[in-house]
């Protein structure tokens, strides 16, 4: 039986009585690449922030590696690597200093830290640029450095929140390959993106989220069949638009 490493039960987050995440139930198995799709304001980032213990849920439970991250954060958080939408790096630090800073926060030090920093930079292809200041990097390099900062402590669960926004196709392709490689190396991945082709290419299972709820969940093929009953060829983007509608979402 496959191990479930993340389970949310009736997970809810309300802001001023508006449910941003509404009774969300998801299960993620070890070894999966789980895609979370949804229009702007669907509640994807809020869900990830709750899983990462950045924000506290209004109601419901999270079970992460068999523990409650709200009550047992110290015991479980080192198993998570979070790559946020923002480029969470210091421009006035060199590449290796950025990776050292974030990796050290998980209790890694000395020679182990040094080795970990080198390995992470090697992994994202920035080892040769290790002594350059992050502020001088291109958008794609900053995105890769952002990833290096989250993987140094060798987490079991990698959470990518739109990691390919605003970068060139080469960098995007590199990042997608690295996500697949991390998964092959044993990491479970949660991945959000607005790029349907990316999600389809990378994820083993996809959930479509709207108005704080999961409205469909399954493999890419299962989602397509849900809309067409297998009668016609359809893209994941068409499935997405059919399920979430074509109305513009102007959330702030």
């Amino acid at each position: 039986m496959e191990e479930i490493i993340l389970k949310t039960t009736e997970l809810t987050k309300k802001y001023q009585n508006r449910a941003v995440v509404d009774n969300l139930n998801i299960e993620i198995k070890r070894g999966e690449i789980f895609g979370l799709l949804g229009p702007n304001g669907a509640g994807k980032s809020t869900t990830l922030n709750m899983i990462c213990s950045i924000i506290r849920p209004t109601a419901g439970n999270i079970n992460l590696f068999g523990k409650n991250p709200l009550k047992q954060k110290k015991e479980v958080i080192h198993k998570v690597g979070y790559i946020p939408q923002e480029l969470a790096i210091h421009g006035n630090l060199k590449a290796w200093e950025n990776v050292e800073l974030f990796t050290s926060l998980y209790g890694i030090k000395g020679e182990a830290l040094k080795a970990s920093v080198e390995e992470s930079l090697q992994y994202v292809g920035l080892l040769e640029r290790r002594n350059e200041f992050a502020k001088k990097f291109s958008g794609g390099m900053k995105r890769r450095l952002n990833i290096a900062c989250a993987i140094g402590h060798n987490p079991d669960l990698l959470i990518f929140d739109e990691p390919t926004v605003g970068i060139d196709p080469q960098s995007r392709n590199f990042i997608l390959e690295k996500i697949k490689q991390s998964n092959k190396n044993g990491a479970t991945v949660i991945y959000t993106s607005h790029y349907m082709e990316e999600v389809e290419a990378v994820c083993s299972r996809i959930a479509i989220m709207d108005n704080g709820k999961i409205i469909a969940c399954g493999t890419s093929e299962e989602l397509k069949n849900l809309v067409t009953n297998g009668s016609e060829e359809i893209t994941l983007e068409e499935v997405f638009l059919t399920l979430t509608g074509k109305k513009l979402r102007d959330y702030t």
């Binding site: 958080i77 790096i89 900062c149």
Partner: peptide, 11 residues
Amino acid sequence: YGISRKFQVTA
């Protein structure tokens, strides 16, 4: 740059 939020994903 959301670094303080990222710090929260630590103990």
